[in-house]
């Protein structure tokens, strides 16, 4: 059973308020190692410099969007195994199908609850302790 405190997370979202909500939710679940990026490029640089176990990313971001970030992470060998959860609105179903083609591990629909986010993370990592 993996411990949340041992899983490092990178949040990618251009909206500071959303990053704050995600961070707050992750801390409630038990995550400790949490980093933030304001767009896909910053996230990619961050995980190349120091890999994370999990990326939680928005779709709509400047410079490099969520799909672009996912593709970049998957083609770069040192980062290709990073778990990737996409944040989405209800109208992004077609984009989600594309994300699945590129290897997204799961998705979370906004607005989400802490329990809902935990459920999606556990679907990827297994039950968290």
């Amino acid at each position: 059973m993996p411990a949340a405190k041992n899983i490092s997370v990178m949040i990618a979202d251009d909206q500071a308020s959303m990053r704050s909500l995600i961070r707050n939710s992750l801390e409630q679940i038990g995550f400790v190692d949490i980093r933030e990026a304001r767009d896909g490029e910053e996230c990619l640089r961050g995980v190349i410099t120091r890999p994370a176990n999990l990326v939680i990313s928005d779709f709509n971001m400047p410079n490099l969007d969520g799909i672009g970030l996912l593709r970049s992470i998957r083609v770069h060998p040192p980062t290709s195994k990073i778990a990737f959860i996409m944040l989405t609105g209800r109208t992004d179903i077609e984009l989600l199908k594309r994300a699945k083609e590129y290897g997204v591990n799961n998705y979370v629909v906004k607005p989400f609850t802490v329990a809902g986010l935990k459920e999606r993370i556990e679907a990827v990592f297994g039950k968290l302790s």
Binding site: L96, N106, Y107, V109, P111, F112, T113, G116
Partner: peptide, 14 residues
């Protein structure tokens, strides 16, 4: 109304 915070399970992709 705004989507429910529990609305994430209505599409089965995984």
């Amino acid at each position: 109304v705004l989507p429910s915070a529990e609305a994430g399970s209505d599409v089965e992709l995984f």
